Simulated scan of single mutants.
Amino acid sequence: MIRVLLVDDDPLVRSALRLMLGGQQEIEVVGEAVDGQDALDRAAELSPDVVLMDIRMPRMDGLEATRALLARGGGTAPRVVVLTTFDADEYVVEALAAGADGFLLKDTPPAEIVAAVRKVVDGDPMLSPSVTRTLISRLRDGSGDGAGDGAGDDAAARAAAAAREAAARLSTLTEREMDVALAVGRGLSNAEVAGELYLSVPTVKTHVSRVFDKLGVTNRVQVAICVHDAGLD
């Protein structure tokens, strides 16, 4: 069974998600939390496999809670999926960079939410290639935020430093692991990577796991960011 924890300060949202997921085979809603702090407490108690996490909540928001959950590490951290209204809440990109496994819009069709829960447990990406590119662009593009030349110089310096760091991290990969990382950076699923590189899906999963370990990341979006920073996307 895939154990799911629902985190949202709106009881109607939690009820809808429970109704949506509760009748699915291999999915069990093991609990609910009303804010980020409650989520940390409930996750420690219930050990969920997946946390569906709202962002804007009282006491502790979903971004801080996501960071805290994933910081526990040790193989016990759940997969975190952010549930938000993307156009209104830019914090979602920070959550993904911090290690969340993806995001869903709150108006996502029920069947897609169910499929997403299963995908993240299997280690597959939740984001389409176009959405991945949009997220990476929003995360890394600070060109419009500066007020003058000084701000632009700072942004350029940060980009150069990020490029050097990303290149150094990617240099630890074998040739085949690099191929897999580049494919993941384009938003391909394990099955799509397997088809493109003429590998079996289990072999791809092994390579993806090694890429995660060597790059020090926890999800595919972070791999894509690393590839992007190195100028290889």
Results as ranks from 00 to 15, higher is better:
residue 118 R to W: 08
residue 22 G to V: 08
residue 159 A to F: 11
residue 28 E to A: 15
residue 193 V to Y: 14
residue 158 R to D: 15
residue 140 R to W: 06
residue 7 V to G: 11
residue 161 A to N: 11
residue 133 R to Q: 12
residue 2 I to Y: 02
residue 174 T to Q: 00
residue 196 E to D: 10
residue 152 G to W: 09
residue 170 L to F: 09
residue 82 V to Q: 01
residue 21 L to R: 08
residue 233 D to C: 10
residue 47 S to M: 10
residue 98 A to P: 11
residue 35 D to R: 08
residue 231 G to D: 05
residue 227 V to W: 00
residue 64 E to I: 09
residue 19 L to Y: 10
residue 224 A to E: 04
residue 79 R to H: 11
residue 84 T to K: 01
residue 186 R to C: 10
residue 28 E to N: 09
residue 78 P to T: 08
residue 78 P to F: 12
residue 105 L to M: 13
residue 167 A to D: 09
residue 140 R to T: 14
residue 124 D to N: 06
residue 154 D to Q: 14
residue 52 L to M: 10
residue 134 T to W: 02
residue 47 S to T: 13
residue 87 D to A: 14
residue 114 V to S: 05
residue 179 D to L: 12
residue 99 G to P: 12
residue 192 E to T: 03
residue 177 E to T: 02
residue 31 G to N: 06
residue 120 V to C: 04
residue 18 R to Y: 02
residue 66 T to N: 03
residue 149 D to Q: 13
residue 41 D to M: 10
residue 184 V to N: 03
residue 25 Q to W: 09
residue 172 T to S: 13
residue 187 G to K: 08
residue 61 D to L: 02
residue 135 L to R: 00
residue 23 G to Q: 07
residue 27 I to L: 01
residue 97 A to T: 09
residue 63 L to P: 05
residue 158 R to V: 11
residue 231 G to Q: 06
residue 11 P to L: 09
residue 164 R to C: 06
residue 35 D to E: 07
residue 142 G to T: 10
residue 5 L to E: 07
residue 24 Q to V: 08
residue 120 V to G: 01
residue 113 I to D: 01
residue 186 R to I: 01
residue 149 D to K: 12
residue 123 G to M: 07
residue 111 A to T: 13
residue 96 L to T: 02
residue 214 K to D: 06
residue 164 R to A: 14
residue 228 H to T: 14
residue 93 V to Y: 10
residue 76 T to P: 05
residue 223 V to F: 04
residue 83 L to M: 15
residue 207 H to V: 07
residue 19 L to M: 14
residue 145 D to K: 14
residue 69 L to N: 03
residue 226 C to V: 14
residue 215 L to E: 02
residue 117 V to E: 03
residue 210 R to P: 00
residue 78 P to K: 03
residue 20 M to Y: 00
residue 175 E to H: 10
residue 20 M to L: 12
residue 92 V to R: 12
residue 25 Q to P: 14
residue 209 S to E: 13
residue 60 M to L: 15
residue 141 D to E: 00
residue 65 A to C: 00
residue 64 E to V: 12
residue 92 V to T: 13
residue 78 P to R: 07
residue 11 P to V: 03
residue 129 P to W: 02
residue 125 P to C: 05
residue 28 E to Y: 12
residue 192 E to I: 01
residue 140 R to S: 12
residue 206 T to Q: 15
residue 189 S to N: 03
residue 48 P to C: 12
residue 69 L to P: 02
residue 119 K to W: 07
residue 52 L to E: 06
residue 154 D to M: 13
residue 19 L to V: 05
residue 187 G to R: 04
residue 220 R to I: 13
residue 220 R to G: 11
residue 49 D to Y: 08
residue 179 D to H: 08
residue 60 M to W: 10
residue 42 R to G: 06
residue 147 A to Q: 11
residue 176 R to Y: 01
residue 150 G to W: 08
residue 160 A to E: 14
residue 186 R to K: 15
residue 14 R to H: 11
residue 127 L to C: 04
residue 232 L to W: 08
residue 208 V to Q: 05
residue 219 N to L: 02
residue 98 A to C: 09
residue 12 L to P: 06
residue 51 V to N: 07
residue 36 G to C: 07
residue 42 R to P: 09
residue 227 V to E: 10
residue 173 L to A: 06
residue 59 R to Y: 05
residue 182 L to H: 09
residue 119 K to I: 00
residue 170 L to E: 08
residue 67 R to S: 07
residue 203 T to A: 15
residue 8 D to H: 05
residue 189 S to V: 09
residue 29 V to Q: 00
residue 70 L to R: 00
residue 64 E to A: 15
residue 70 L to N: 05
